[in-house]
Design a binder for these strands. Structure first.
Lengths: 192, 192, 192, 192
DNA sequence: GATGAATGAGTGTTCATTCAT
DNA sequence: TATGAATGAACACTCATTCAT
């Protein structure tokens, strides 16, 4: 019925499984059951179709991030919540997450590119959240004293890597979520 | 002078910065200063040129891995050594490492593909090394009791993510190496 | 106006005069007055364009063969009719006949190839028709006693050769049709 | 040892089985065990290599034709001898004969082309021989009265077709030679 | 809204041929 | 004699994109 929606959803599926370059406008059109110009009726470009999808993906991601209630009792709960959230969006929207994870860091030269913008924004938000949690934990004596900047960078990169592997899922990854949280707890929280 | 070498090196540079699909044989030829057929004189295919480069990259990687002397005093030194090694190869051969990191997980469907083979071998080796170190640490009482399988998976994914971010290097990442090692030490090693 | 038709007809002309391999898609496009991709808009392949033409040619040929009313008084009339038919299709559709004659026996290795299939079917039909006519003539006492199999093979080959020469037409070939029929009559029909 | 000979023989084999266009200079070189420039050392062109082979083939053919002793008792013996000779060269030199038969009539436009020259010469010789035999037979009362020109044309074309089929040999062609001779005898020789 | 038709600009690849050595 | 290296010219084919309808 709604053809634009069909086009967008099909494109999401194809971009997620094949990447931007390997997906052709003809393939999208065929799988939707329309002709190529129809795709161009709704989207100016293949690139702008991709951008629109990135927008959807990032909106979803940022909405999820913003919805997190991080004013919990302990600083570590914030960290744990952030980790859980990233595992949850893989289960929730695997294709959008895959596009977000995989497509973005390809061409980071162009600063006006949607990819780059989203990437920067995501890093900025995450850095903020992790930094605040770390700061809070350190100040309250809950955490060891870490270099906040380097540690939040590392946590972001770590999460990124774990998500990627989770998506590729080449072998059993059960227990990775719990293990990750435990690992971070031991690394951060001072034992008494 | 040695044109095959020039072609290979240029291809490494371009594949590293643009990826396989976005790099054209014409572009390689132009940057080397030869004509396209010259590329095909030395390599049967664009794919086989890429495979040859992957071979170089993986040989370098596996040689480095195999050269690690991991029979240290403590289990954690093994872990630390593995982390340091992965940071070092980024500094040592950034382009080859980038190709290894970025190009591989694109097409993991075909099990005969060179990418897939390398990816599997790398995971297999790393899994072994991390597992053994973890086992040793747990058995000796040096480490907390972890699920070895899940933890080594997580460590691999974490390293992968950190390396990726290190390569993208969008902001200052100083201190990430030391922080990573410290983070892992706190997470793994029982405090006395 | 109808571009597909123009493309097909131009391709027929070029394939007939130059053969499959020596005819390029660019040449076809230029002679039609379109660009190369237009050819590929209507036909998936150069090979499938050729196959479509072979289909046209063989349909025309087999329709002509099947339309022959061979239940004549004498057995020789059947033979004569077959000979006349093959002369007539050269005059009628010289280019299609040329393609049928010249292109087919090039790659007879692949049994799934359209060429091979047509070739086999044509031989099968002709063998049947000639064999039946010969049998009828021998049984009725109209013909000398011939080895039916060898004779029909020979007649097919003979027709093939005469058609080829007729097409090449390097010198005056007038009277060849009448002569061929007379020659065969003398060879086959018992004189009284 | 003699590389030129090897090259020529390999080229004969490949041209015979694949045709001129489908045979590449690289393929010839590889099968001989030399490099491509070696081929060009002995032959200026791929075309001139082909011409040289045609020369060999036509020399062999014309020598065979010229060696025929056609001053026999009867006119039909001449005809029979010519037929037998053409069957014999297929058995004797199948590859050269194949090249002669198949490659020539492709491009008969260029009158300076070796193919065209050989084709014309062969037709000229055969026409002469058949015409003389026919004339002799008609004058002596051995043959029916035929149109000599049309009949010799037809006989040449017929032989050509039968040879082609003999080479393709898609089914049992036993007895075709004897049948052909008998067929021609009945067609030409007046029964008493 | 949607499409049939068409295309400019590539893309990987091949091949006959050349030339310095 | 023979070859390693190199190339001009072409080739089949693809793809994002446009435009009249």
């Amino acid at each position: 019925m709604n053809k634009q929606k069909s086009i967008t959803e099909t494109a999401i599926r194809l971009f997620a499984s094949q990447g931007f370059e390997a997906t052709t406008s003809l393939q999208i059109a065929l799988e939707v059951g329309v002709t190529e110009p129809t795709v161009y009726y709704y989207y100016k470009n293949k690139a702008s179709l991709f951008s629109a999808i990135l927008e959807i993906a990032s909106d979803h991601y940022f909405a999820g991030i913003d919805a997190l209630k991080l004013s919990y009792n302990t600083a570590f709960d914030c960290i744990a919540e952030l980790i859980k959230f990233h595992f949850s969006i893989i289960a929730d929207k695997p294709e959008l997450t895959s596009i977000l994870l995989r497509s973005c860091p390809i061409r980071l030269e162009d600063p006006n590119d949607t990819c780059t913008k989203i990437y920067r924004e995501a890093r900025f938000k995450l850095k903020n959240l992790f930094s605040k949690a770390l700061e809070k934990g350190i100040n309250s004596g809950e955490f060891y004293e870490f270099d906040i900047d380097a540690t939040s960078n590392m946590l972001i990169a770590m999460l990124n890597g774990i998500m990627r592997q989770q998506m590729a899922a080449m072998d059993s990854l059960e227990g990775v979520e719990a293990t990750t949280i435990e690992f971070c707890r031991k690394a951060l929280v001072i034992k008494r």
